[in-house]
Design a binder for these strands. Structure first.
Length: 807
RNA sequence: GGACAUUUAGCUCAGCUGGUUAGAGCGUACGGUUCACAUCCGUAAGGCCGCUGGUUCAAGUCCAGCAAUGUCCACCA
């Protein structure tokens, strides 16, 4: 047998071999007919537009996968799908950039065709990559957020919520990205600090008096519709109720009062425009102020802006300031730093704009949603606070429509005659009202046959928020709702708690009156060498494919599970190399064991009393390891489990135990040799299983080469997780073992330091030996003597005196 | 301004419900081995455990305050 075992572990060949094997044998396939408990997983569908996969992706997917593999080996029926998010704005932007095209200058058909082509290509790259990493995904469950099943689910979600009165359409101010030319939701915004100028501008009152307002947005002066003061502000008591004249446009606006005005801010006199910020929108709503929208959807000023019409925002600001200066109306100006909202996808500043949009009413659900959040078990627990904070801070209903081309269409038509909203039946879905009319062709209310389809598309989260329902085939007659829903586990990173997690919670609360999952697992970020977030625009980008190519998937996975759940992890090639080292070490240890257990009878089961001391020790340590690794994995503490495994394997098993029993393996005493062989094989077998979730390729190779027999499962990944064997779980043995290791250390020290400190070391040695139980020692003495001999020392345990160096 | 997290050896991080001389990996220096190990083993150097107070017989570990870093949120007149 030993002749057949290759000396080196050929990473690339072997990993590829088992990946093909797993697929062929359908090791990871979900079995809907099994009676085993189901463990269903809701994994993030990554955006295909991210055309480079980096080590950060590897980290979060691997961490989740280790937990999943553990549950699979515990005999649970794993439902582990993969999805691709190839829907919506990110994909559009990717295509725009790649082909350098402008959405408004191409037809919808051309554009969506390109999007579909790119997502198909991207999907292939992703699938290949995830497979090369060894993810135990059931690829037969693959979904894409633009495929017809997802569209159907998203549209049915819309219809269901519409019927429940949760969805409304309103022509109101919305967050608007002038670069993408679409409405946005609160969750699509990001903060950005920017330097700007606070300018003090003179306004005249009708009676000729002058007042001063402060603003960072002078270009909105032509859109001013009111001034506000605090009702108790002595300075302005007299002017409240009067009219002011807006400079440059000479329009009359009223001076109103509101207790919400902050007297300390600026001059205490507040200019309200259509609409510069959230305050403006609120005042506009509450006091029914006039509307004077001077910025168009493309970001240019429109005809209502008078002489500034046609200018871009920046140009308009310059022009307005120039004009104000010419008229000596700017009485103060200072540079300030303030934070403005930018669009998360394109980083352009977000404005307000009014146009008809679809909304889901969520502001009245805050308490319910927080309660749903509490039904879920959070790992790590503090991550739940991010959700609560977000819910507390909600100010707007969820705007679900986007003025774009590529995405799931709304299942909505409008009657051209009576403006009735026309909806399809569930069995018609998916529909595309932009392309085809409703089934019965005319308006059910007025009979009008001219019907318009809704041209907007859904927010990408409208689809992503129903991934559990897509997977459970909620929309199908024969669905898996009972089997896999609510799902067992959601895995994701923390930055999309406010989007993906929150929106999914909203949907499942409204559709199924449950939380969507029982547990969530939130991972941190993989950081670049410099500690910054990995991003391909920076030089800290670590292409995951290249690392796998250079080392191995298993080594990269070993790095990925090095941080505790929820913590960020800095990438370091040294750590990957350390992972590679443990692969080699495991391979060699297994090879050694295989060579020395070739002819042993593996069927017989020895009991502790038939074993030598050292063998009982390592097996008792093994039981402790089995117990604690399971404990850690139950708590999603894969990093701690990994450390336990490493330390047991490398230090206790390889450096100490194997060295201790080599003499018996090479010796003539068949009984003593068999005792060691038995412990060696039992330990190796357990280790291969315990390491399997972390290092799936290597452990599969070891299992197939050294462990598997005709009665075993075809793969280590579906073979049973090790259990504690009470017969060998012996604390007394572990205590003796600790002493045993001290004695070995003392022997090595004597060797290393020769004469130096000799007496101390000999004392350590004898004291260590004396600390052992008598029967344990008498049985282990020959093993120790062997170690001593291997270190060129002979020691007389009886007299505790003689030390020879056979130099 | 609010929230959450982090702060322990040169680097990356462990240190559970407080208890003897604070640990691992990598890196560094030195020594040994190459008969499982394109290696491996051993030894050493290196830490006011962010700062300040408090509780306690006893604190890296609990409490309070402060600081730095990261992230999220709020503030945009």
């Amino acid at each position: 047998m030993s002749a057949e075992i290759p000396k080196n572990y050929n990473t690339k060949e072997i990993e590829k071999k088992w990946q093909i094997f797993w697929e062929k044998e359908r090791i990871y396939q979900f079995n809907p007919d099994s009676s085993a408990p189901v463990f269903s997983v809701d994994t993030p569908p990554p955006y295909l537009s991210a055309d480079h996969l980096h080590a950060g992706h590897v980290m979060s997917y691997t961490q989740a996968e280790i937990i999943i593999r553990y549950h699979r080996m515990k005999g649970e029926n794993i439902f582990y799908p993969m999805g691709f998010d190839d829907n919506g704005l990110p994909t559009e932007r990717f295509v725009e950039k790649k082909y350098n095209i402008n959405k408004s200058k191409t037809t919808r058909k051309e554009f969506t065709d390109l999007c579909l082509k790119e997502t198909a290509a991207g999907g292939k790259v992703y699938e290949k990559f995830w497979k090369s990493l060894g993810l135990s995904v059931d690829w037969s469950l693959l979904y894409s957020t633009i495929d017809s099943r997802s569209q159907k689910t998203a549209q049915r979600s819309f219809l269901d919520l519409f019927r429940k009165g949760r969805i409304y359409r309103e022509d109101a101010p919305v967050f608007w990205c002038t670069a993408c030319q679409t409405a946005l939701a609160q969750a699509d915004l990001e903060d950005k600090e920017e330097k700007s100028f606070m300018r003090d501008v003179k306004f005249s009152l009708e009676n000729g008096d002058e007042v001063v307002i402060s603003t960072t947005r002078p270009e909105l002066i032509p859109a001013c519709v009111a001034l506000y003061v605090h009702p108790d502000d002595e300075r302005y008591r007299k002017i409240a109720g009067q009219n002011a004249i807006v400079p440059l446009v000479n329009e009359k606006v009223s001076v109103r009062t509101s207790p919400l005005v902050d007297r300390e801010k600026g001059t205490g006199l507040m200019m309200v425009c259509t609409w510069g910020d959230v305050e403006d929108v609120q005042k506009w709503k509450e006091d029914k102020l006039p509307t004077k929208l001077i910025i168009g959807k493309d970001g240019r000023f429109n005809e209502k802006a008078g002489k500034y019409a046609g200018l871009k925002l920046r140009e308009a600001r310059e022009a307005v300031v120039r004009d104000l200066e010419d008229q000596n109306l700017i009485v103060g100006s200072r540079e300030i730093t303030h934070v403005l909202n930018i669009h998360e996808r394109c980083k352009n500043p977000v404005d307000f704009y009014a146009s008809p949009q679809w909304f889901i009413k969520i502001l009245d659900l805050k308490d319910d949603l927080k309660k749903r959040g509490e039904e879920i078990k959070w790992h790590p627990s503090f991550m739940k606070i991010h959700l609560d904070n977000w819910i507390d801070g909600l100010k707007w209903d969820w705007c679900i429509s986007r003025d774009r081309y590529y995405g799931v269409p709304f299942p909505v038509w409008y009657c051209a005659g009576c403006e009735e909203i026309i909806l399809p039946e569930d069995d018609e879905l998916p529909v595309d009202p932009r392309e085809s009319p409703p089934r019965n062709g005319s308006c059910p209310r007025c009979g009008e046959s001219k019907i318009k389809g809704e041209m907007q598309v859904m927010d990408t989260w409208m689809t992503s928020s129903v991934t559990p329902l897509i997977n459970a085939r909620w929309q199908d007659r024969k669905n898996l709702m009972k089997e896999i829903y609510p799902m067992t586990l959601r895995v994701q990173a923390f930055e999309i708690i406010r989007t993906w997690l929150f929106y999914t919670l909203v949907k499942s609360h409204l559709h199924t009156k449950t939380a969507p999952w029982r547990e969530v697992m939130i991972s941190g970020w993989g950081l670049g060498n410099d500690g910054q977030k990995m991003s391909k625009s920076l030089n800290n980008f670590v292409a995951a494919g290249a690392i796998i190519e250079k080392y191995s998937a298993d080594a990269l996975r070993f790095w990925a599970c090095g941080a505790m759940l929820g913590m960020n992890l800095r990438f370091s090639e040294e750590d990957v190399r350390a992972g590679q080292k443990i692969l080699t070490k495991l391979w060699n240890a297994a090879r050694f064991i295989a060579m020395n257990t070739e002819n042993m009878n593996r069927k017989a089961n020895l009991s502790p009393k038939n074993l030598n001391s050292a063998d009982r020790w390592i097996l008792s340590e093994l039981q402790k390891l089995v117990r604690s690794v399971a404990e850690q994995l139950d708590n999603y503490e894969f990093a701690k489990a990994k450390i336990l495994l490493e330390q047991f394997f490398w230090i206790k098993f390889a450096d100490n135990y194997i060295e201790l029993i080599k003499g018996r393996l090479y010796g003539e005493d068949a009984e003593k040799k068999y005792s060691a062989q038995f412990a060696l094989f039992k330990t190796l077998s357990a280790l291969v299983h315990l390491f399997a979730p972390f290092l799936p390729h290597l452990t599969e190779e070891l299992y197939q080469c050294f462990i598997r027999n005709s009665a075993s499962p075809v793969s280590v990944h579906i073979s049973p997780w090790p259990e504690v064997d009470g017969d060998f779980d012996d604390e007394k043995m572990r205590k003796n073992g600790k002493k045993l290791m001290e004695v070995i250390a003392a022997i090595r020290k004597i060797k290393a330091e020769k004469g130096v400190k000799l007496s101390e070391n000999i004392t350590a040695l004898t004291v260590g030996a004396r600390g052992l139980d008598e029967s344990f020692f008498s049985n282990a003495a020959s093993d120790l003597q062997n170690v001593a001999r291997a270190n060129a020392i002979s020691f007389d345990w009886q007299s505790e005196k003689t030390v020879d160096f056979s130099t």
